[in-house]
Design a protein around this nucleic acid. Structure first.
Length: 381
DNA sequence: TGAGATGATTTTGG
DNA sequence: CCAAAATCATCTCA
């Protein structure tokens, strides 16, 4: 960078240009001390301007001086280039394009000029572009990442996945035997998804790094002939990564969808609903009808019932919720059942041998609770 | 195979 | 937040 600043002090025209284009106050100061190589710089600058002013066709045409040798003159005199750039494009030039290019490349001022051009470019084009290209971590992709991690698709090999699945299975509250069968099935499918996901991800990553390398090499190569700063290359790499990450997001999205479908297929409790066994229903009904005036078992009662029926507490709650609403909705339909359990309870309580009774008197609402059938303690209705 | 039963989940209301 | 009510999805059985 030292070289560069030293060189800058001599850049009469360029400093002006930089100031005009970029508004860099420093360049004003820098142009005040003029060194010896002023002539050379002016010359090179003119040449550069001439090149940029030329159309591609003109430049190409000049690569072949033998086609119009008379046109080119023969002078190597640097003062020849002292005219305005625009004029050069129209009139005869002292050097053909390749010669000029070579001369420029070999010139000792070239690195300094190049870095100045890079700087100007950076400050104009790139800064404008940079405004809309800030990339905060995409919330969408973060969400997808989190979900994939939680489902055990990404992240550590087995631990996360089976733990999450086990937790889900436990939450679903199925019976241990068939849940383990379905569980292994689920795990197999999840592993399949996981494998596909990882292989695709690897493919994308490989393609991304290959492409990035390719572009970087290309830009490095080009940076020998046109002003490309390392920062610009960096920026390009960032752009490529953004593009690839948007592709990755699609992969993640579809993986998430696949996992969700799998989950709903295997782990949605409704999909593997089993009716409670007869004994369990009996226990629950017994409790319900014997507490018909207040069919709301306490937490302890629920736990007790859950244990007796080999189901979970929340299943007991569900059962009572369903039972209450369905009983209330259609008392008539449950009358027979109510009587049956009423008899049963009464008999148990009185500890006397009961005789079956087919009477079905209409239920009468009891105080504040659910309508209950009438019965006497000895089992007669 | 379809209607009703039933367990689970979601929505609603206090 | 809890229970009621509505709804869903599956099971059972004629």
């Amino acid at each position: 960078m030292d070289d560069q600043t030293r060189m800058l002090t001599g850049l009469t025209g360029l400093a002006g240009l930089a100031q005009a284009d970029v508004g860099d106050p420093d360049s004003v100061r820098k142009q005040q001390s003029l060194g010896q190589p002023q002539q050379d710089i002016g010359d090179i600058l003119q040449q550069i301007m001439a090149i940029t002013d030329e159309s591609l066709d003109e430049a190409q045409a000049r690569c072949w001086p033998e086609e119009s040798p008379a046109h080119w003159g023969g002078s190597d005199d640097p003062t020849e280039g002292g005219r305005a750039g625009g004029g050069m494009a129209g009139g005869g030039l002292p050097l053909n394009f390749q010669h000029r290019k070579h001369a420029l490349n070999c010139h000792r001022m070239k690195p300094a000029l190049f870095s100045v051009l890079c700087e100007i470019k950076e400050k104009t084009v790139l800064s404008i572009r940079g405004v809309q290209e800030e990339d905060p971590p995409d919330p969408q992709i973060m969400r997808l990442d989190n979900m994939l991690l939680a489902e055990g698709v990404s992240g550590p090999e087995k631990g996360g996945g089976s733990a999450a699945a086990a937790a889900a299975a436990a939450a679903a509250g199925g019976s241990p035997t068939d849940s383990s069968i379905e569980h292994s099935d689920y795990r197999a499918k999840l592993a399949q998804i996981r494998q596909i996901y990882h292989s695709e991800l690897e493919k994308y990553e490989q393609a991304c790094s290959e492409f990035t390398n390719h572009v970087m090499n290309l830009l490095r190569e080009q940076s020998r002939t046109r002003p490309i700063s390392p920062k610009e290359i960096e920026r390009m790499v960032a752009i490529i990564h953004r593009k690839f990450s948007s592709i990755q997001m699609q992969l993640k999205q579809s993986t998430c969808e696949a996992v969700m479908i799998l989950r709903s297929r295997f782990l949605d409790a409704r999909r593997k609903r089993r009716n409670f066994n007869k004994q369990a229903t009996e226990v629950l009904n017994e409790y319900f009808y014997s507490h018909l005036s207040n069919p709301y078992p306490s937490e302890e009662a629920k736990e007790e019932l859950a244990k007796k029926c080999a189901i979970t507490v929340s299943q007991v709650s569900n059962w009572f919720g369903n039972k209450r609403i369905r009983y209330k909705k259609n008392i008539g339909k449950f009358q027979e059942e109510a009587n049956l359990y009423a008899v049963k309870t009464a008999v148990d309580a009185a500890n006397v041998s009961a005789q079956a009774s087919q009477a079905n008197s209409p239920a009468t609402p009891n105080s504040g609770g659910y309508p209950a059938p009438c019965y006497t303690p000895d089992g007669r209705l």
